[in-house]
Design a protein around this nucleic acid. Structure first.
Lengths: 240, 240
DNA sequence: CGTCGGGTTGAGGGTGATCAAAGTTTGTGG
DNA sequence: CCACAAACTTTGATCACCCTCAACCCGACG
């Protein structure tokens, strides 16, 4: 499969694009590269001249405070362009890092700008993706700001499952997640030790099976209830 | 001053728009309305057909959990279009509410879409605004996820001061902020009681004077240091 | 076999929550 | 202009969730 094909399919889930638009997207010049796990793709302060289309693997965005504490801001799955914002915000205000070995396609801002200038409907589809990004950030603020540790974890797992299912890469209740408990802690605003205790709590409750990096959620409805999860904010189904 | 004029000036801070673009923005049909304090402008679940340009006053976006806890996601000041995302995300995933009596201009999605379709540079300027929004959300995730209560408050105050200064509405260290300590608590993921103690801590440290709704920050550098505040994420200065 | 990253467990401590009540300011209607 | 209510701030006492520190375990991998 071609790299830009993954993007096209992702966009078409919620936006209708005509044949010309589709072709234009597929013709985007992407430089494919394989990136090892735990490797920075862009860092805070940099001014990238390209954006990165995730073809395979997992990425995360993160920031680190003065005190050296890391906060993961979002998890990214294939089909997404996690640093699309750099197309219009020239300085990176956070890091973009691989969680697992990943395949990414780099697309120059030049090419993206040319495409969006010429095809407003593609521009809108991409704009929309960045808006969904923002919607996920909003939900994460709620997650770390107002939910208990168990609820946070439940919510995170439900979100990732739902999103993977959305792109047809996994069932909502069973998937691979290349995050250590330390990563999860940084995503939830907790310490690794406490994440461990919470994982066990979910296990004991029969809501989570987790070994190595494979996740199984035996009782999704109950997990979603516990995590106060409602997929509205993912905006997966609407037509723009 | 005309309502759309405020928007134009906001956009021109960081983006260069030609005379034609400027005119087109000024010609946007806005229905001006005065909205009392503590009033919802749009609510989660609704499908608005318009976006709202804040001309005067303060708005906030928020979500409420199943458990009934409210989390404020962002504070909005004049010149911003807080629900611009509804242009491409038809269902609202959060509430938009006035903090104080405000003047807003409603602009139909129809008019906005016509404008962005016809003028790519305006579309990009507006897109950019939504991307800055997202950058602020990211910083808020860090704030509630990884900072102590005092640092959270310091950061919030520094952010609002900086943004107000950015649009020329106030000095960075002295401004009106129509939020109760309960509102602040909901913005920081804390309880009102604890916010009160933290306010007093900042007062004792000589970093904050707060009475009624007027804020004075006597030692901005130290406050920013304490709050781990770096204005990079506001993307106020760059040219796209 | 030794090392290393990551998971697990335990004990103790602190930040911020909760509950409750009093004080203060603001706004409203008489 | 006063009386009163409502909203907000402040204070105190107690509690719990999650942190910190520390050690140990386990499997992967050299």
């Amino acid at each position: 499969m071609q790299a830009t094909d993954r993007l096209l399919r992702k966009l078409q889930i919620s936006t209708s694009l005509d044949a010309e638009d589709a072709k234009a997207i597929e013709r985007l010049p992407a430089i494919i590269r394989e990136v090892p796990a735990h490797t920075a793709i862009v860092r805070e302060g940099e001014k990238p001249g390209q954006s990165c289309l995730l073809v395979d693997g997992f990425l995360c965005r993160s920031k680190t405070t003065d005190a050296g504490k890391r906060q993961i801001l979002s998890i990214h799955i294939p089909g997404e362009i996690p640093d699309l914002q750099s197309l219009h915000l020239d300085i990176m205000d956070h890091d973009l890092t691989t969680l697992s070995r990943s395949v990414v396609g780099f697309i120059s801002h030049e090419a993206l700008r040319a495409l969006t200038r010429e095809r407003p409907s593609v521009a809108e589809a991409l704009w929309r993706e960045t808006l969904i990004d923002a919607a996920v950030f909003r939900e994460w603020i709620v997650n770390v700001g107002r939910r208990s540790a168990v609820a946070r974890l439940a919510h995170l797992l439900a979100e990732i499952g739902t999103r993977l299912q959305g792109i047809g890469l996994a069932a909502g209740d069973r998937f691979e997640l290349p995050m250590t408990q330390l990563d999860i802690a940084d995503a939830l605003g907790l310490t690794p030790v406490h994440v461990n205790r919470v994982v066990q709590e979910l296990r004991r409750a029969g809501l989570l099976e987790l070994r190595k990096h494979s996740v199984f959620l035996p009782d999704l409805p109950r997990l979603k209830g516990l995590g106060d999860f409602d997929d509205l904010y993912l905006h997966q189904s609407e037509t723009a």
